[in-house]
Design a protein around this nucleic acid. Structure first.
Lengths: 224, 224, 224, 224
DNA sequence: CATGAATGAGAATTCATTCAT
DNA sequence: GATGAATGAATTCTCATTCAT
């Protein structure tokens, strides 16, 4: 399982051109917001909750962000771009499509394992945001789709993958399968702690199952 | 493709023990709420929007529902139970697992084709509701998972499906693939109207692609 | 203890010029309103509560009364005038002032014993009403004061009562003493059921104590 | 007439642990609420009225108090406890019961002379509050009763007061007499300004009349 | 008369955002 | 920068009153 790319997800990224102290506080607000959004949902989360979680006065939030909405879109943009970079790194690697897909699955599931609040917000909140429909974010989400679709197309051209399936639809099937596996973790529909091998093992199992189903199908060998 | 069960999705269900007129208006409010929730999202939707959409006075909504939250959970409960009944009908049919899965996919995608607002609300809103975590609704969502998982287990026992994959994880992969295909329709990431064969053809293609991927995998024949 | 006058308190009075059936229903609404006002207070009481208590449709209330306020003032006026008539009957009797005051106390306490809800509303609600300040009701309440004050003045002139005390102030002391004794019953600050002699005995004791204190004072014989 | 204790009634009490400015504003809101409640009654008073009276913005009220109800109960609790302290100070004094009762009457009437709105709210509003029935406030009101009853019992034991009357009932007679004298002032049934000696003289006369009636009775000397 | 569905003004409350210190 | 008091628009919910049947 790829260990490199997904780690990048966890490191704060940008912070702008200002002083280190400012950057730090800005980061603290974003982290706090991720926690609070994950816990209460964007709409229920109050700016004062975020400030309390960050340990600062709530008026200060408005020195760093224009408004609440901007916090959400900043979370999205900054974290997402990190994610896309990791995805592109996967894409560029010279390995079979199969392995790339395992890496993508690991990237996504690992992100959740390491930063569940972050993924919760991405999975559950940002798609609800009015700005999701905005060109910027739509393009951003689209980039994930297109990245995966490119991997699939490359696999089809190399003969590794079937050519009779629409790669755009197949891509949603793949990402969707991953997403719901995630969501069932997020919402604790499934209980990783109760599964054999502990949480880590569970995530691995999910990643492999998704890719296995996706590549080989569920039909018994003699039936395919 | 199954034609029977999914039609039930579109018929109002309960309405309580009151007069037909009362039932009708109650239904009108629910329909209006579905439209508005689908358009603006639950939190952005104002009760007054629902009332205007339903063509009734503001306060009348409160004659039929205790509060806004109850409207959402009513939508969920009444529509979802219809959906589960359709699912159970599929499950009981004496056909191969493969065909059952096609029916489930058709059920879900067809529901969206016929009542996109309804599915939007189910897919995008109800999981956001605070009540989603409540036993009742959690169980309700769980029932879909379990229904599909039962179909998978039956297929495994009959030898039609591989036995080396966890049916619970596989079930999330299947439903998740469907869901994201749906979401990409809902959010118009994909454009059915632009696809060859028109919208109907597109839905069919999605259903078949999902099931095909799910059963046979994406790997090229000689590579599996 | 006077048995005659206070009974009049319990009989419905007027009913207007209409049919007996109409009169009956009107009365039912008033009785229901008294119960509900006593239970919840005027402001918390909903017209629908009154209608439910009366066993009628709530729109019907508006066939009999212009609005909720009119119900309260009707209760006040009709019951109060009965009360005043009883008071005047006491006043006209050719007995010592002392006995008249016992009768007034008995009249008031007995009314509570027989119709606690009625007295609750009079004691606790009507003084809160905005209409209390209106000439009609102010005059009505004033009539009670003046009636008692007349009894006191007559006693002063006959030499039965001290002449050095302002009868208007003395009258508020007397009525106030009665009222708070009542209120402590209404609010169950005192518990008649726990007192020796049961509820009836308690009311009698209260009546006698009030009049005794009022006439003879609390000072020990050698101290007065 | 006692001059010390009742003054305490007028001083703000608590204010919580916050900054002086915050305490001041909190106090301003309470004072404004007392005025508005006294003027319109609790139910008719709008939070916006209170804010306007206090000269602050609407929403600021909610920075200081959870809701409207809490304003009322705060008024009650903070002011009432001051009142009880004054009562206890009277009780502890080493003077005859007669003098203590004069002090209690003066305490109550003086409070009204100095802060009529405060007493109006206590007399007319708080007993209507739903919270009046709550243990805390019931106990608080009970404390006044019990304080007076203790004074009476002490007087009975010292031989100063008659022992044949129930001190609990006598206590309601005393307090009730005072209360209605007050209420008739509050509601302007009596007009102090028109009375000989002006308002101050009137209050004194009321206090003395109440205590005189209460101790010596109204019966003429030869009739007792 | 009787019903109760329908109306909508009114009030409480929330909370994002601003601003004086 | 930092604070949190102050603001008030927005929204939910209530319920007295009206009105069509």
């Amino acid at each position: 399982m790829a260990r490199g790319p997904q780690l990048a997800l966890c490191s704060p990224i940008d912070g702008g051109p200002a002083s280190p102290a400012r950057r730090e506080k800005r980061e603290a607000i974003l982290e706090a917001a991720i926690e609070v959004f994950a816990r209460c949902g964007y709409h229920r989360a109050r700016v004062s909750d975020i400030a309390r979680e960050a340990g600062i006065a709530y008026g200060l939030v408005y020195h760093y962000f224009k408004n609440k909405e901007e916090i959400l879109s900043t979370i999205f943009e900054e974290r997402w771009s990190t994610f896309l970079e990791a995805l592109e790194a996967v894409e560029r690697r010279d390995v079979p499509a199969r392995e790339k897909l395992v890496s993508v699955a690991a990237l996504i599931l690992n992100a959740y394992r390491l930063r569940p609040a972050w993924v919760k917000v991405l999975v559950l909140e940002i798609q609800r945001s009015s700005r999701f429909a905005e060109p910027g974010q739509l393009r951003a989400v689209g980039a994930l789709f297109q990245g995966v679709a490119r991997i699939l197309r490359a696999g089809q051209q190399s003969g590794e993958l079937r050519r009779d399936l629409d790669p755009d639809i197949a891509c949603t099937v793949f990402l969707g399968g991953l997403e719901l596996a995630l969501t069932s973790l997020v919402l604790e529909l499934a209980r990783p702690d109760a599964a054999a091998g502990g949480a880590d093992g569970y995530y691995l199992r999910v990643a492999h199952t998704v890719v296995d189903v996706f590549l080989n199908g569920l039909a018994a060998g003699d039936a395919s």
